[in-house]
Design a protein around this nucleic acid. Structure first.
Lengths: 118, 118
DNA sequence: TCGATATTTCCAGATATATGGAAATGAATG
DNA sequence: CATTCATTTCCATATATCTGGAAATATCGA
């Protein structure tokens, strides 16, 4: 069953975008983006974003269902990580066939990796 | 007041993502992305996505409020266009300080502009 | 000014989502 | 096996969103 496929069709994209379209989930996702490969345990995330366990769990499940984060048990903790491949697939879907293929401005080059602070 | 600023803070990003997190609005936005600079009239959009006027208007207003599309009157039609700058700001915000600044995989380069067909 | 065209606003009902406390589950430790 | 720690599931309430018909608004042409 399609549980962890890259964002391919409209329905997947809507689910992923909906997962990100919420204050706390967006904060969690960005936190995981910045955490990178090591990921973070649910408890550490809860501490960072200041949410009660039940709410955080709800949001993590939402992000996981949408395929934007992965879950791995490590001892008694559950480690969550941003899924960069899924994210890229989503961005690609949004900009697909941008400007009908014409050489539009560098519309698909978010300079995030070059940025210093803000 | 902040009506058309680039996506800067979390609240803006949530609004933009929420605007895209809906089947019909996503279809409309992608249509406008592909239409590029000329944009499309509301009626043409309605025809393309098959929505009654009132619903489409609701969704276009939503996208406009979120700063993802712009509106310009041309005769009796209203021309809508995707706002690529806002889109890029959103993508940049999502990937900000990706992997803590480490040289992570080319996570922020959706190859949309290089793609041939799909 | 009258009529036709293009689009929006108004409305109310149907559906979906967010919240957090309390109880339940899963995994390690002694 | 009993205890502690980490996280999830359950539940009810509160809030927000989607929908489309009908009426209102705006622009053009004769």
């Amino acid at each position: 069953m399609e549980m962890n496929e890259p964002v391919t069709g409209a329905a997947h994209a809507v689910e992923a975008l909906g997962a990100l379209a919420q204050e706390h989930r967006l904060a969690v996702f960005r936190l995981l983006v910045q955490a990178g490969a090591p990921g973070m345990a649910a408890g550490a995330i809860a501490g960072a974003v200041g949410l009660p366990g039940s709410s955080l769990s709800f949001h993590l499940a939402h992000l996981t269902r949408a395929g934007l984060v992965t879950q791995e048990r490590r001892g008694r903790s559950l480690i969550y990580r941003a899924d960069f491949a899924a994210m890229n697939a989503l961005l690609g879907y949004l900009m697909e066939n941008c400007c009908g293929g014409a050489a539009c401005a560098p519309a698909a080059a978010p300079e995030a990796t070059e940025r210093k602070s803000a």
